[in-house]
Every structure is written in structure tokens, then in C-alpha cells.
């Protein structure tokens, strides 16, 4: 028997979450699977295509309920995306589901040519993304996918931070007439209430917390840690920090990025991705090209041999937790 995975949240972080009244949700993966099943029950044109990944994609119930709407291609990710393109070209609304590590490397050329260049409205679903499979090693990590997928034309990239964003993103992807890359992990996540009442839309940031000291711009499963760090910085240092969830990595909500850069004293980006070519560099590009100078730090996985451990261990090691992000904020402001 293996030991239970170490918690993603320190006791201090859990206490902050409790003070904020955050409720624990479930894994985005489960939210995805249930949302897709509900959509597919109402629309027989929706298909899930899997590469021996129906179990890891939590699509067992989907396969049982709708056996005619799931297509298995075997352990063949290039085939997965090629077949998805063919189905999509004939009017099927396809969700091609496979671990992000394989889907965005092994079948990258099929994503680029068969889906995006050929313009078929397929949703490419990268599950167990980032370091979700932390302890399994680099073969199973997707820390390159933002960089490569951002460099492909005609692809919207959505990285939900909680169950709400996941649910809405799956619905938006099903309605999208152009290709979407949807990327999420498998750890249970806190639910994150928005600071405003704007409905979810692809291409739009979600402000979770207002403030003008430090702006945390984050995406995916790091957003919660930024939210906790902001709350902690308020109680320990009296800082008012802004937290912006950027569920859409491309096209990036540059208005939200520029507002943060103009209105806050420092900007920190956080992502479960290598620091090369991901959210941080996208944000830096927007800020620099607007001629804005600001204190700026990209927090992600550095360009080094990735440390061994669970997702929680890796987040802690590279400062992607509440404690790490709060320390980075103080450092950036020049506070001890």
C-alpha cells in the first residue's frame, strides 16, 4: 500500500482557506467528465475519443451511458487526434481525451495540422496535466504544453482553476466553432468565488480579489495558492493584493493584464508549467509592449531537471504554494 498523497495545503494554508470561507470542491477531471456526459446526453453529435484513457479521464460512466458516443483508438495518440479530426470534419462535436503529456507532444503535429490548420472544431482535452502525475517523472509531466500550444494558430487554450471554470469551459468548448485545448489536473480543488458577477467567457479573466499592492496573475491549479497568499499577505503585512485568474491562456485577456500592471505596484505570475514560453512570458509580452515598467516575477517550474515528488511536493519546492507566493511578493516589494 502506498502512503496517502501529502496534502497540497499546509495547515496554515488550510486555516486561511477556512477564514475565507472557501469550500472544497472536487477534481476538475470529475467536473469535466460529468459536464461532458450531461452535454452528450442532450446532443448525440458529441463524441468522446480516448486512447486507453477512458479510466484516467473518468469517462467510464460516459462509456456505460452512451456506448455509441465514445470511440476508443487504443494507445495511439497520433491516431487519436487524426481520427478526431476526421470525425470533426464530418460534423461531429469531438472531445479527444488523453493525458496532456502525450497529447501535446506525441500528437503535436496532428494538433497543428489536422485540427488547427484544417480548422475542425475539435476540443483537445489534456488530462492529468502539469505535474499531476508528479511522482511518475518527466515522461508524465506536461510542462511544455503552454509553450507549444501557444505557438499554434487557431487554437484557444483554456486552463480552468476550479470546478466552476471547468464546467463553464467544457460548455464553451462544446459550443465553440474553432479548436480548443482544455487542460486540467486531477487533484480536488477549492471553489473560488469571483469578486465580480461577470459570467464566464473564453478569453476573459476572472478577478477573484481586488487590490493594488501586488497583482497575482495565475492560471489553472496555481490560482488557489495565489488567492491564499493574497489573504495571508493582508493579515500579516497589511497588503492589498489583486488576484486574477486567467483561465484562457490564448487569447489572453490583455486588458486585465494591463490594468493589473498599471494599477498595482508589482506583478507576479504563477503557473504549473515551465517558466519558458508559458503564462509569465505571455503576460510579460503584453506589459512590455505597452511600454509599462513594473516589478515582475514569473513563478513556475524552472528550466532544470524537475525535482522528484508528488504534485504537492513539486509545488512546494518551486514556491507555487501560499507560503512561496507570499514570500515572493514581499521580496519583490523589497520587504523583509
Amino acid at each position: 500500500m502506498s502512503a496517502p498523497a501529502p496534502s497540497m495545503y499546509s495547515p496554515a494554508a488550510k486555516a486561511v482557506a477556512e477564514k475565507l470561507g472557501l469550500t472544497m470542491g472536487r477534481a476538475n477531471l470529475e467536473e469535466f467528465a460529468d459536464t461532458l456526459l450531461a452535454l452528450a446526453k442532450a446532443d448525440r453529435n458529441i463524441l468522446a475519443v480516448t486512447s486507453d484513457s477512458r479510466g484516467s479521464g473518468k469517462l467510464g460512466p460516459f462509456g456505460q451511458a452512451l456506448p455509441k458516443q465514445i470511440v476508443e483508438v487504443g494507445i495511439a495518440e497520433q491516431n487519436l487526434v487524426g481520427i478526431a479530426a476526421g470525425l470533426g470534419s464530418c460534423g461531429k462535436n469531438v472531445f479527444a481525451v488523453s493525458p496532456a503529456c502525450f497529447l501535446t507532444a506525441r500528437s503535436l503535429e496532428q494538433v497543428k495540422n489536422d485540427i488547427c490548420y484544417s480548422d475542425h472544431p475539435v476540443t483537445i482535452v489534456g488530462i492529468s496535466s502539469g505535474v499531476s502525475y508528479g511522482a511518475l517523472g518527466t515522461t508524465h509531466h506536461s510542462l511544455h504544453d503552454f509553450a507549444v500550444m501557444r505557438a499554434i494558430n487557431n487554437l484557444t487554450i483554456v486552463v480552468p482553476a476550479d470546478n466552476f471554470e471547468t464546467r463553464e469551459a467544457v460548455k464553451a468548448a462544446a459550443a465553440s466553432l474553432t479548436p480548443v485545448y482544455l487542460r486540467f489536473g486531477k487533484a480536488p480543488l477549492y471553489n473560488l468565488p469571483s469578486a465580480d458577477s461577470r459570467p464566464f467567457a473564453m478569453g476573459q479573466a476572472r478577478v477573484l480579489r481586488e487590490g493594488s499592492d501586488v497583482a497575482f496573475l495565475a492560471t489553472g491549479e496555481t490560482v488557489i495558492h495565489a488567492q491564499l497568499a493574497a489573504a495571508q499577505l493582508e493579515s500579516t503585512s497589511g497588503l492589498q493584493c489583486r488576484v486574477v485568474s486567467l483561465p484562457t491562456l490564448k487569447p489572453l485577456d490583455s486588458a486585465a493584464v494591463l490594468a493589473a500592471a498599471r494599477e498595482c505596484r508589482a506583478v507576479i505570475t504563477a503557473e504549473e508549467h515551465m517558466v519558458n514560453g508559458g503564462l509569465g512570458e505571455a503576460v510579460a509580452g503584453v506589459i512590455a509592449q505597452a511600454g509599462i515598467g513594473t516589478r515582475f516575477k514569473i513563478v513556475g517550474i524552472p528550466d532544470e531537471y524537475t525535482v522528484t515528488g508528488s504534485q504537492a511536493d513539486i509545488f512546494r519546492h518551486y514556491g507555487l504554494t501560499m507560503e512561496g507566493l507570499a514570500a515572493t511578493a514581499l521580496e519583490l516589494l523589497g520587504r523583509p
Binding site: 476526421g86 461531429k92 496532428q110
Partner: peptide, 10 residues
Amino acid sequence: LPIAVGTALA
């Protein structure tokens, strides 16, 4: 070929 497989399957 994989695209044609998807097409024929549709």
C-alpha cells in the same frame, strides 16, 4: 489515413 479512418467512422 487516421483522418480518413475518422471520416469513415463518422
